[in-house]
Amino acid sequence: MVKFEILKHELVPQFEILKKEEIEALRHTYGIKKEDLPWIRRSDPVCKEIGAKPGDVLKITRKSPVAEQSVGYRYCVPG
């Protein structure tokens, strides 16, 4: 079976693993711990694809019907 490139599918938003400093900046802007972000599991197809490890923070940029573009973050957890 040909492997399906999920990252290129139009319904899959853009994912990006944040660098250490970016995580710190994010924690500062929202005044939170990493665990307070919404979680994503390492077994999520996107995590497997981009190689996210538990402890990483992902930035998601997606098209939004109301705000044109919206940015969200996920905290990668095992499982």
């Binding site: 929202y30 307070d36 919404p38 109301v66 705000a67 940015v71 973050y73």
Partner: peptide
């Protein structure tokens, strides 16, 4: 007040209310 939607423990549910904060 920062426009985020949060649970009682301060965890973030939405980064901006309704994506546009309206």
């Amino acid at each position: 007040y920062d426009g985020t939607v949060r649970g009682t423990d301060g965890s973030i549910l939405q980064f901006k209310y309704g994506d546009d904060g309206v």
